[in-house]
Amino acid sequence: MKPFEVTKKPLEPARYMEYVTHPGAGAVTLFAGTVREWTNGKRTMHLEYEAYEPMAEKKLAEIGSEIEEKWPNSRVAIVHRIGALAISDIAVVIAVSSPHRKAAYEANEYAIEQIKRVVPIWKKEIWEDGEEWIGDQAYKPGGEQY
């Protein structure tokens, strides 16, 4: 497996947890982002993700390097799935190990926030009565963050 990857295959979180675990680690945080059925009162039937794959993998690796610099002795693996995903499928897995738990939590949250800002991956929501490419949900210039 590659530690920073975009793939069409179903994700197996345990593999990424194993990859980041090492004798110097005292904590591993494992985040899984899953496909939600209801968003703002609208029912999603399924999602489709696409990526600019080479750039996305490069950006994921950059996030990993940033984390290893900001939180010394941490180790990171991030994988994002693309293609058609059903409700409750795992879209993204972030595994971070660190000597202490606080850094592992913080670094993991930093990773998902950076993914939502800079990694060229897009999500299309398919509803019962339509579909739409979702963009800029959290980082609309001048908009509210949520």
């Binding site: 982002g33 993700y49 990526a51 600019y52 750039m55 996305a56 994002h80 879209a91 993204v92 998902i112 993914i115 939502k116 800002r117 800079v118 990694v119 060229p120 991956i121 897009w122 999500k123 490419w133 979702i134 963009g135 800029d136 949900q137 980082y139 609309k140």
Partner: peptide, 10 residues
């Protein structure tokens, strides 16, 4: 040259 619309991964 790639045109990158607002991203929505995660």
């Amino acid at each position: 040259v790639a045109f990158i619309p607002p991203v929505s991964g995660g």
